[in-house]
């Protein structure tokens, strides 16, 4: 019985130590994870540009929507507010992307600013790391005559979840970082 107890204590100590040890990632590893997270956000911005582009065939746009949705944790939402109406409107990620695909402009330009701001990765109680990456987008909508009818700049704060996982591939144990995007807060900063 006594051995049991000490075994349990040892096991717990093991877990606790593991928890602490994992948090002490070297700056190099942290940077590699940051870059990976940033890459997923860049992928998303490319998908968004493709989905919004009126030249993208319908079937391709739908396929890209599927790929974009795969980047996200299930149930992730996009919360949108405008300069004049700060109330947040919520959309499921797929709904948000499908709305973007169906926007009623003859031509759409989606540009991304170079700036990307990456927060620290913080751990939540279950051990998953969570961070936020901020990017800025310029959206321009044109009518049939090529006239600019709508333009805005939005700040997009994108949640990023990072979790260490392991899997067997061809008998080899692979430790990988599972990066999934989460909720996105879209805030309008300028509008024309």
């Amino acid at each position: 019985m006594k051995t049991y107890k000490s075994l349990i204590i040892l096991l717990f100590a093991g877990f606790a130590l593991q928890g602490v040890a994992q948090d002490n990632l070297s700056p190099e590893r942290k940077q590699a994870i940051d870059s990976l997270a940033l890459e997923k956000v860049r992928d998303l911005s490319k998908y968004i540009s493709l989905i919004g582009d009126k030249d993208t065939p319908f079937s391709e746009a739908n396929r890209v929507i599927d790929r974009a949705v795969e980047l996200f944790m299930e149930g992730s939402e996009v919360g949108v507010s405008s300069l004049y109406k700060e109330e947040i409107n919520y959309y499921q990620v797929r709904e948000y992307l499908e709305r973007l695909m169906r926007l009623n402009y003859s031509k759409v330009d989606i540009e991304w600013y170079k700036i990307e701001y990456v927060s620290d990765l913080e751990r939540q109680p279950d051990g998953t790391y969570v961070g936020v990456i901020t990017i800025f987008q310029k959206f321009s909508g044109y009518d049939q005559e090529g006239g600019l009818v709508y333009q805005d700049v939005t700040k997009k704060d994108i949640t990023v979840y990072v979790k260490r996982k392991e899997t067997q591939i061809a008998g080899k144990l692979i430790g990988f970082w599972d990066v999934l995007l989460g909720d996105i807060r879209v805030k309008e900063t300028t509008k024309e």
Binding site: I33, R42, K46, F176
Partner: peptide, 21 residues
């Protein structure tokens, strides 16, 4: 050794097509 999430060649090639990256 830190890996990204494993993928398949088909998905990866389509990824290259979409992201041009």
């Amino acid at each position: 050794v830190d890996y990204d999430k494993p993928t398949t060649i088909e998905k990866y090639l389509n990824y290259l097509k979409d992201t041009k990256n």
